[in-house]
Nucleic acid binder design. Sequence first.
DNA 1: TTGAAAGCGCTAACAG
DNA 2: CTGTTAGCGCTTTCAA
Lengths: 342, 342
Amino acid sequence: MSDIGIKELARIAGVSTASVSRALSNPERVSKKMRDRVQAAAKRVGYQPNRLGASLRTSRSGNIVAIIPDISDTFNSGVIQSLERAAAERGYSVLFGDTQGIRERELVYGAMVRSRQADGIIVFSHRLPFTAEELQSENFKLPPLVNSCELADSPHIDTSNLPWVSIDNVQAGRDAVTHLIELGHQNIAVITGDIESPSTVQRLEGYRLALSAAGIAYREENVYQGAYTLEAGVRITKQVLLAKHRPSAIFCMSDEMAMGCVATLKEHGFGVPEDMSVVGFDDIRFAQYLSPPLTTIAQPVEAIGRTCANILIDLIEDIAEPESKHILPHKLVVRSSATTPR
Amino acid sequence: MSDIGIKELARIAGVSTASVSRALSNPERVSKKMRDRVQAAAKRVGYQPNRLGASLRTSRSGNIVAIIPDISDTFNSGVIQSLERAAAERGYSVLFGDTQGIRERELVYGAMVRSRQADGIIVFSHRLPFTAEELQSENFKLPPLVNSCELADSPHIDTSNLPWVSIDNVQAGRDAVTHLIELGHQNIAVITGDIESPSTVQRLEGYRLALSAAGIAYREENVYQGAYTLEAGVRITKQVLLAKHRPSAIFCMSDEMAMGCVATLKEHGFGVPEDMSVVGFDDIRFAQYLSPPLTTIAQPVEAIGRTCANILIDLIEDIAEPESKHILPHKLVVRSSATTPR
DNA sequence: TTGAAAGCGCTAACAG
DNA sequence: CTGTTAGCGCTTTCAA
């Protein structure tokens, strides 16, 4: 049970190291007798292959890195949870990089593929984790990479052609706002996520479309630029309450923002939904337990994580087209935070 | 900028591979001239050392694995966030293992040190990620490991001697309950976390001590066995409401449980805190934005993660005593979910 | 201070 | 089907 290498095990089993390697990694390419013999010996002495040796030889680390701006965001942590599980099922481990949006840290994680610590990257941030210099360089080749639709365009590369997985954010934004319109709201504010994020831009487009389809004029002053955080929800909601033509409903582009929004409304004496309707986005675990339970757009968190992992691994293992796009279904979940305006 | 190895770089710089290695990894052991020359060449061609080669040679992967039952738990994700950051500052990456409490997955992650994919382990689960067989084996040596005070005793090893970092859970539990007693509560229910978890056992002990110090009889039926999840909070709270001698206050051993508890109370028409006081534990990000804002015990999330990382790395790099214990400070945060009973 | 060379543990040609 | 052997890219003696 002490630390034994392949040589030692080969000696013990009375076979060559090549046979040990084969019997353990490609059992089908070896006789049953050999297989049993080696596997028995391996088990007996508690042989655990050194993956570093194998990785060096094969140039495959078996790791993928997930670049995430903020793991403590509830939506993100749900995605990474399913991502990790799906990766594990295919024999990959995930190195995770919480960047807090810091460019330097993004670059560090982006470099992990080049330094062979990882075989591919899943990007949940807005920027590619490579320097402009790298991107412009002729012999720079993008490593296997999938983006979860938060990746903005880059001046140096057409990010829209990279593999991605996402919901239909335009339609989802439209669904949320249409719901409010159907309840009778005409004056609807929206608090956006980070404005560089494609998901925000798309959801905002959905907001526009919903308004326009209902013949309601789009008014610039109803669009509040925020960020996908609870704190932003708190901060911006105060601004909304200050508005000259105060809206009767607020569409928040994340549930965390909606939490902050609702808390702030209550703090200022506004009942939700009696005085102000609120619709969120994500359907995080907590949404149904808030008071009031949050009406929101549900994202298929589990599927997003799983799909990201699987596409990336397909890419790494060369069994996927390099431009796979996956649109996953979303769903409006009606609870109690939005109602007919008074 | 294409992929260049150390040999090629050595050739380009006109020096030996040994010098390249030294100039890059131990610049102080090389002349200034050599250093500049190599570093310039490395920069020019965009040399990125292959960590696999280095790792194989040095038997150091530069990774640590964090074994976590549930990353989407808000408290856990906060800890892992700071853990990752602290690890990164010391040049380590974190592989994370979300086990969902599944034994098999724990073992997979536990094996990563033996297979050299990682240099040490941080354990947030109840069990050591090793089989009984392994633990009993004579020449089994525990890898560098720190536990965040969730590790239960093992029949095969004295886990209490392993390095750990934690708050003083006994005192924290006592503080929470004392607060309720000082408000005037006499009949206080407690909803526990997973009963195998030392943190739960300790907090329960604190509950006992607080009662006893106030001369209040400890009553078995006021102790509800739960789990640190929102769903458990929901489920158990219903049981509490069914109690013959209904308590006037509930101490929940996590904020997520408290969220579920408060939601359930409201759903059944109980005002919080008018009809029922609730105290939580953790002070997760959301606690202050719930309605009512949650009175809770704040854990130093950032410090816990950072300390775990630093102790583990000290252990790996042989610069720490193997039995370091760290008690971090907690704090009662009084908000609005607990008040004087009617 | 620098270079030559061995070797970390494994896999994959290649030969038998 | 199995064994021999070279070598993945790096670090680290050892000698100069």
